[in-house]
Nucleic acid binder design. Structure first.
Lengths: 330, 330
DNA sequence: CTGAAAGCGCTAACAC
DNA sequence: GTGTTAGCGCTTTCAG
């Protein structure tokens, strides 16, 4: 391995000077600089990252905790965050938690082992109290998912509004019996969306029947299950707000199988505006989330946190708007 | 920051002994061990990764170069590789090349800056000659994409067979005019699939018309474009083999818009067996790729490479079979 | 079974 | 403008 002292020896200079050239220090003689650069080139010298990190006490990489890489929402989000990070000369370390409390905790440890300078959490599995113990005043920003107790920058979407505009749209289409399903009930995102749904229903004084509500729906399979439940109900909802496009698409697909017409027998609306929303038939009405913007804001917040060495006991919330995409399923 | 010497001081032992306990050295007195562990716990000591890496000259992380996170094939592949790596106590660093030659080169540098112990490439943008210059005899394994000159372990799918069985299926359905499209022509994967297509066509002595062939098709938009081209042809193909499910789905969606019936007017077959293949209507006949197996084999090959410190100038090819999933679009 | 000492490769005071 | 020196936190001979 070629080290900085090899370069120093080759040029007859000190390692300090070599280091200065490499780090673009202002006051180095043009001649010296060229000599160093030439030697670096010739010897094929490349700085050792571990040594730099140990010395500088910073890694220039930030961890992004993400529950599921195969979920399009997250893969698009990560893609954007990565692009933004690259612009700032930073690397991202993708930490795949697979919705596991333990994995999440393990990854939060990266901050302690000085493997990353900061952490972006796109989902939260553990109690904030426990998370906070690990991260203390370290740079952390919450993106998408959030908790109210967290005193850190939070970039989130107005999920209440999302639930509200989707439901209101169905109501305006003439529906009065509207079902709803979401992923985990513990998720702040899921909770907020439900609040939006409730808000719209109450505003129009519509009844929310317990049997029209479903939980723990994540995949198309869950959507299929929900459709069967609905079909067997004496008093069926005429419209349904699904917690994600995958679930909605599963519902549509299964509805057709059992001869329920969409949107005539049951109108369906999803959440996310994924690729499949345009492909399924009828095309899915859904709530669009400005993923690019979230990614951008998140990295901005992180960079700011990293710059200001002060304690980050500051709660800052950036809330971005959602929009309704009307297609054929409603 | 709590360091190893803090623990040493607290226990009245040397840093050496503390290090031994932490690294599960055999000969440490039970009493000593407990004392260390207790101090570690009390002080909240956590080893500094950069220091360990610098000293040990290994990182325990391997880089996975991937062109596009949002492509389901790759996100599923990465997910599996990550799981396998975790089993071996290794981390993976996801390197998003975005199909950029330059980005790829930058990431290959990670090996030189000792930020990773090995590299898995799932796509190849640069000439192998140039890549080889950077990586020399370092641990590298090719996964999915490959080049013939590479003297490294290669885990790949039998793409020739994939092209062949898909085409043969269409022929057996009675089609004689069969079109074909693929992504980049430079890709070994794309090239092989085309060979399989050609092989089947030749075997049945069917004509391959140049106007039925398309290139650089990646997204559903490309599929839509292709359908319009086909529709305007005096001599139309009656079946089409698309290079990916996305493209196939775009074709189906657009075909319906211009009143071409699938599969009657045009049969379509895709490649990948993604989620959308089951959702689109008619459901898409496609080639299934055993992604889990590829991920597993790839990590196995990498671990073996890492273990055997010898030079890896050995070309080893593992080829996995593909299978045809017949649905309604053919 | 334990400790002293060296050093992994780099950067940053501090001096000149 | 450049060099000397110390040290980031850890592991590993080597000696006892």
């Amino acid at each position: 391995m070629v080290t900085i002292s090899d370069v120093a020896n080759a040029t007859g200079l000190s390692t300090t000077t070599v280091s200065r050239v490499l780090n673009h220090y202002p006051y180095v003689a043009e001649e010296t600089r060229n000599a160093v650069l030439k030697a670096v080139e010739q010897l094929g010298y490349i700085p050792n990252n571990a040594a730099q990190t140990l010395r500088r006490q910073k890694t220039n990489t930030i961890a992004v905790l993400v529950p599921r890489l195969t979920n399009p929402f997250f893969s698009h989000l990560i893609e954007k965050i990565e692009v933004e990070a690259a612009k700032m000369g930073m690397q991202i370390l993708i930490c795949h938690t697979r919705y596991s409390k333990q994995k999440e905790m393990e990854y939060l440890y990266l901050l302690n082992t000085k493997q990353v300078d900061g952490i972006i959490m796109t989902s939260i599995e553990n109690k904030w109290k426990d998370i906070y113990k690990l991260i203390r005043n370290d740079p952390i920003v919450l993106c998408n998912e959030y908790v109210n107790e967290a005193n850190v920058p939070i970039i989130r979407l107005n999920q209440v509004e999302g639930g509200y505009i989707g439901t209101k749209h169905l109501i305006e289409k003439g529906h009065t019996k509207i079902g709803y399903c979401s992923g985990g009930i513990l998720s702040g995102v899921g909770f907020d969306r439900f609040q939006g749904y409730k808000q719209a229903m109450e505003e129009y004084e519509l009844e929310i029947k317990q049997e029209w509500l479903f939980n723990d729906t994540f995949s198309d399979l869950d959507g299929r299950r929900v459709i069967h439940c609905i079909a067997s109900l004496p008093d069926r909802p005429s419209a349904f707000f699904a917690g994600s496009d995958e679930v909605a698409v599963g519902m549509i697909s299964e509805a057709k199988k059992i001869n329920m017409k969409v949107p005539d027998d049951i109108a369906v609306i999803g959440f996310d505006d994924q690729f499949i929303a345009q492909i399924v038939e009828p095309a899915l009405t859904t709530i669009h989330q400005p993923i690019q913007k979230i990614g951008e804001f998140t990295m901005q917040a992180m960079v700011q946190l990293l710059r200001s060495q002060t304690i980050s006991n500051k709660r800052e919330v950036f809330e971005l708007p959602l929009s309704l995409i009307v297609r054929e399923s409603s």
